[in-house]
Design a protein around this nucleic acid. Structure first.
Length: 418
DNA sequence: AACCCGGGGTT
DNA sequence: AACCCAGGGTT
């Protein structure tokens, strides 16, 4: 520590540089970690027995693994690959079809971006491009996924730093501070870029992540760690404090009231807008409640505005509550006693629909439906754009969130008891 | 930089 | 209940 000379200007705290990565240390880390990976890597469906992975499969796995644990993604990966075995098959698919295979996985923009990127890759490159820069230009490819696919599938010497790798590297090089801050992130990325070996970039990146997932977690098992002797956080006794935990505000409550419209044992579903919460998925027609909104009146207004239906709203039939990361989602379904078309709105032209507060809208449709679906009378049973009737025991193939699935199941159970 | 986006497991 | 997960997009 050098003392400041009298008269010298007080210096702002220096920006910490990327920690040095001596070649000998890099070589030791690579040797030990790759040996450990060869011996104890998990047998995952998208991993080739040896060598480079199939680009399409590696990409699909990476997207499904975004913010999603390996064990949770595996069954989805198998089913998705069965439906869309190749990049070309995916590119030729429809969004509804893709989203129905994604249903339950969450973060549905991943599914939509996956389809858009597949189409773009086939059209512009005749397949997935090999460089991180070209991949990065496709929807759904951020820095991590671009580096992961380039290194794992194409052998490009690019880093791929996910949450696991970031934690491992921060500990190995004792990088203190919050990884959300740019300076900290740049130091981690700097170390990562210097460490990737030219020989086995994909295995190296996966080894870092694998170590973070199985050994170097929030509560690290240093006794099983192949690089413990090289870990500066461990040497300083700081392994448990790096990285510091993030804090999130308590999730807000989102109350949604909806209508259980039955016809011939089937329920009416409407489609949500493709952006925002649960974008592009099907749900019961309804509305988000604000404050102490009376639920039944709100449902009545929503049916009139969105579907052109005059309805009599009955009692509560079912309710479910789901915990999302950032929301407590509460769904309440009400009985619909009778329903008839609002006079004069059978063929609404460009009727102005009140614009919902962004992020709180609970209708997926651009405008009112055409012919009203009658309950007893059956005026025009033809399909209405943006709506569909589904049987509760035929939910496979329907793009529907877990929350709405639970609600539909509860409604079917309540109906069965009558 | 801050916020949004699901669902589920671990501690 | 807090925290996290093979992150990316938008503002």
């Amino acid at each position: 520590m050098r003392s400041r000379r009298p008269g010298a200007a007080p210096r702002a705290p220096p920006i910490p540089p990327v920690p040095p990565v001596p070649p000998a240390r890099a070589a030791a880390l690579r040797r030990r970690l790759l040996a450990w990976y060869d011996a104890s890597r998990r047998d995952l469906p998208w991993r080739a027995p040896q060598g480079a992975a199939d680009p399409y499969r590696a990409w699909l796995a990476e997207v499904m693994l975004q913010q999603t644990r390996v064990e949770a993604a595996i069954p989805y990966y198998r089913r998705f690959l069965e439906a869309f075995p190749t990049l070309e098959a995916l590119a030729a698919a429809g969004e509804e079809e893709v989203l129905s295979r994604w249903a339950g996985l969450g973060y549905y923009a991943r599914g939509r971006n996956l389809l858009a990127a597949a189409r773009e890759a086939v059209a512009r490159h005749g397949g997935l491009p090999a460089t991180p820069e070209a991949l990065r230009a496709l929807p759904g490819f951020g820095p991590y996924t671009a580096g992961a696919v380039a290194s794992i599938a194409f052998g490009v010497r690019a880093p791929a730093v996910d949450g696991n790798a970031a934690r491992v590297l921060a500990r190995l090089f004792r990088i203190e501070g919050r990884p959300e801050e740019r300076a900290v992130r740049e130091r981690i990325l700097g170390v990562a870029a210097r460490l990737v070996p030219a020989g086995r970039p994909g295995d190296w990146n996966q080894a870092l992540m694998e170590l973070g997932a199985t050994v170097c977690g929030r509560a690290p098992a240093c006794g099983r760690c192949p690089v413990e002797p090289l870990c500066e956080a461990r040497r300083a006794g700081r392994e448990r404090g790096i990285p510091p935990p993030r804090r999130h505000p308590a999730p807000a409550l989102l109350r949604v009231a909806c209508a259980a419209l039955w016809r011939d044992g089937r329920l009416l579903l409407v489609r949500r807008a493709s952006r925002g919460l649960l974008g592009g998925l099907w749900e019961l027609p309804g509305v988000t409640l604000h404050g102490a909104d009376p639920a039944r009146a709100a449902v009545r207004r929503a049916l009139r505005r969105d579907l052109g239906l005059e309805a009599s709203v009955g009692r509560e039939l079912a309710a479910v509550e789901r915990q999302l990361t950032h929301r407590r989602l509460q769904l309440i379904a009400y009985e619909i006693r009778s329903v008839r078309p609002v006079p004069g709105t059978g063929k609404p032209p460009g009727k102005s629909v009140p614009k919902p507060v962004p992020g709180t809208e609970h209708r997926g449709r651009a405008g009112p439906a055409g012919p009203a679906p009658g309950m007893r009378s059956r005026p025009v049973p033809g399909p209405v754009p943006g709506t569909r009737w589904i049987s509760p025991d035929a939910l496979e193939g329907v793009a529907i969130s877990t929350a709405v699935r639970r609600l539909v199941e509860a409604l079917a159970a309540a109906r069965a008891k009558e």
